[in-house]
């Protein structure tokens, strides 16, 4: 594994100007720089898909906070990915309303369609499957979230259909 020089690291080298600008904006509305930590992680994740070790060191440097503390924050949250993920991350709600309305059938259909289990990514790098705590769509259960979209009132067929549509979509370059 490549070792990272954390003493003389130059964060400018890792973060883009627009990432830095977004993070600085967050830092400016909080009382302390470290309070922008979670936002900074999200900014970088939005740009790069996930938060690598390099990104983590770079952010901690930019916010002048210990990297261990930032890692403690990063790993605390369900929506910060500390491993590479697919192009689309499927967050299937597995909380009680979805459980009662048979999210299990939806889960099985997704697993079978993508040939992956929770925590895995498809070979073509298109999809990662994760569970999610209650998505707040209990009256329209079962629900899954992909990106910022919430897909509600799922059936096994409809879930697979949505994934097929996403797989065929061209990424805006």
């Amino acid at each position: 594994m490549e070792t990272i020089d954390t003493i003389t690291i130059d964060y400018q080298h890792y973060l883009t100007a627009s990432e830095i600008a977004a993070i600085e904006h967050e830092a400016s509305i909080m009382e302390t720089r470290e309070a922008a930590g979670i936002e900074a992680l999200k900014v970088v994740q939005n740009h790069r898909g996930w938060v690598s070790d390099d990104s983590l060191y770079a952010i901690s440097d930019l916010l002048a906070m210990p990297v261990a503390q930032l890692e403690g924050v990063a790993t605390f949250y369900n929506l910060i990915y500390r491993q590479a993920v697919g192009e689309h991350v499927i967050h299937l709600c597995d909380s009680i309303a979805c459980h009662l309305t048979d999210m299990n059938g939806v889960l099985e259909a997704i697993k079978q369609h993508l040939q992956i289990d929770y925590g895995q990514t498809t070979q073509d790098g298109k999809f990662t499957l994760l569970s999610n705590a209650c998505l707040g769509g209990c009256d329209k259960a079962p629900v899954m979230m992909i990106g910022s979209m919430h897909y509600e009132q799922l059936t096994p067929d409809r879930a697979v259909e949505i994934l097929q549509q996403l797989a065929n979509q061209e990424l805006p370059s």
Binding site: E34, I38, L63, M65
Partner: peptide, 22 residues
């Protein structure tokens, strides 16, 4: 906007979260 953790709804945990702490 938070990043998904139930305990952040507890008011003192929420305050830690806002301060950028675990």
């Amino acid at each position: 906007s938070s990043a998904g953790r139930y305990i952040c709804g507890e008011e003192t945990a929420l305050i830690n979260a806002l301060e950028g702490k675990r």
